[in-house]
Amino acid sequence: MSERLNVKEAIQAKRKNNKSVFVEKMVPVILFLAAFISIITTIGIVGTLTYETILFFREVSFTEFFTTTDLSPLNPTDPKFSILPLLMGTVMSSLIAMFVAIPIGLTTAVYLSEYASSNSRKVLKPMIEVLAGIPTIVYGFFAFTFVTPVLQEVIPILDRTNVLSPGIVMGIMIIPMVASLSEDAMNSVPNSMREGALALGATPLEVAFRVVIPAAISGIIASFVLGISRAIGETMIVTIASGSTKNFTFDVTQSMQTMTAYIVEVTSGDAGAGTTAYFSLYAVGMTLFVFTLLMNMFATYITRRFREVY
């Protein structure tokens, strides 16, 4: 004779089981701690950068950092600290990168979303995204050992390390990012709009440029901004292929150091903790962090603010 199972009693027995109640209460707390790590990471980044940057500006004035153009951190007798040569390097290399990435990325997106059949898109899109999965050190190697020598055939005055070659390679690295984000934006434009334009006699090219792109413009611009932010933060390509000359110039055939490459140079150099050169790392890192953060936030803002909802 088996005992009859009473649901009510079973539930009450379960409620009294202290262990499982304890587990149920502890789990969210533990999971919250895991989630909190990401907040601690942000606090850690902002905190260390701010703290050491303040120490840096105790020794170097704001005006020297932002208005002079000499940078020689490891000079033993008369070190100079100005971020302008680094900003110049970063801006020039990112500009070149975007000259490559924006036209090619956008037209790739137009081709994939407006012209390609769904089968060829299924093949092409993952292949293009392979470009984004290749480690940047590989691009750096390629820029330095292949692209620069090839460019030197065309432009003889090009230095062995220069801004042009890593800029171009960085642009190619960013193509998949611009292309896939722009394509997502274009794909969310409803087909009825395309069909309406086609019915009025527009060619697919006119549909793409007069209907789809204007309708998807917020997503497209966001993809450009994220691309620029990526170019600003990119490190290994410029470190290898653009060298470490702290040049304040517009001449892209010369070597120029970017903010990221400066951090690499000083951390792998002999700057001991506590020296001004060491603190300058954080001032440069802070500038880099603020720049990229602002651009990322700007990208989020324009997609949210100007998104057309259909």
Partner: peptide
Amino acid sequence: NLAGVPSIVFGLL
């Protein structure tokens, strides 16, 4: 936002 922070800044951290 963390996903957009340059990797070199994580290096500094």
